[in-house]
């Protein structure tokens, strides 16, 4: 029969926003706000390339309006792919009824991602659709599309302004998803000028209502180059629910290779 228990827990590439490198004045020479916005996005992508591979753990705390909590734990493996989206694997540890369920994602820049789900109870690998952009990831306030690395090609951009954010100065950019399946009309992104780390994203739904706000913190630098947020908090303003996503146990330049990100590798994931 249809299964189901785990298939809906599929989600897209959950790559942290990795940033790096020396800083160039981004706004100085661009002519229009659209060009400046795109330039920032391209620069951010370039700073995020070259990490090779990494593994990490994710813990999520889901809170409803009454303060009731539930927890999720996932182990993540990511392999960088030249000139295409990354390959990644997610192995679920908690809740316990989905323990051992694993998801393999081959992300693509210019076409739909490929996704396979491994269901340990049946020892079955299922190819699943990657069309679920706006759905909730594991019952959290993160949608699948919030979890994926924002591919430059999948948005149009408009630079809005610079403004202080904490001790830093942030550029504020508006970006519009080009994907019709996106649940958002637009997003507003705060990135510091120094390192292009993302500190806040406001999400506006298709009716242009302010639906959610993501705040990021606990940035750590890896391999002297890559910045990674340790904590991401998503608040839903319409429902009052929130999700805190914590990243730990980062390991970069692991011995992972292409073969670990195949269907055979998926059946072996634990």
């Amino acid at each position: 029969m249809i299964h189901s228990r785990a298939s809906r827990r599929a989600f897209r590439l959950l790559v942290p926003i990795l940033l790096t490198g020396p800083v160039a004045p981004l706004t100085a020479f661009a002519a229009t706000p659209e060009e400046t916005g795109l330039k920032i996005a391209v620069e951010a992508r370039e700073r995020g390339t070259g990490f090779g591979s990494f593994t990490a753990r994710q813990a999520m705390v889901l809170r409803n309006k009454q303060g009731q909590e539930s927890r999720r734990q996932v182990r993540v493996k990511v392999l960088e792919v030249e000139d295409d989206g990354n390959k990644s694997m997610f192995v679920f540890d908690n809740p316990r009824d989905v323990k051992g369920t694993a998801l393999l994602v081959h992300a693509h820049r210019n076409e739909a991602d490929d996704q396979w789900l491994y269901l340990p109870a049946l020892k079955r690998v299922k190819r699943i659709s990657s069309s679920n952009r706006s759905g909730s990831f594991m019952g959290s306030e993160f949608a699948y599309e919030d979890m994926s690395a924002p591919e430059v090609e999948k948005f149009t951009y408009r630079y809005l302004r610079d403004e202080p954010c904490g001790d830093l100065t942030c550029t504020v950019t508006e970006r519009l998803p080009t994907d019709r399946k996106s649940g958002y009309l637009r997003q507003i992104v705060w990135q510091d000028r120094e390192e292009l780390r993302t500190w806040k994203i406001e999400y506006y739904d298709r009716k242009d209502e302010h639906l959610k706000t993501l705040t990021l913190g606990g940035y750590q630098q890896f391999l002297d180059r890559f910045w990674q947020a340790g904590e991401m908090t998503m608040v839903n303003h319409l429902t009052g629910k929130s999700t805190v996503l914590t990243w730990t146990d980062f390991e970069f330049r692991t011995d992972l290779d292409e073969r670990d990100f195949t269907k055979t590798g998926l059946k072996r994931a634990r």
């Binding site: 809906r8 539930s70 959290s140």
Partner: peptide, 12 residues
């Protein structure tokens, strides 16, 4: 029908 709630409620 998968509700995608924290309890993963589902009807088939």
């Amino acid at each position: 029908l998968a509700l995608n709630d924290p309890e993963s409620t589902e009807f088939v």
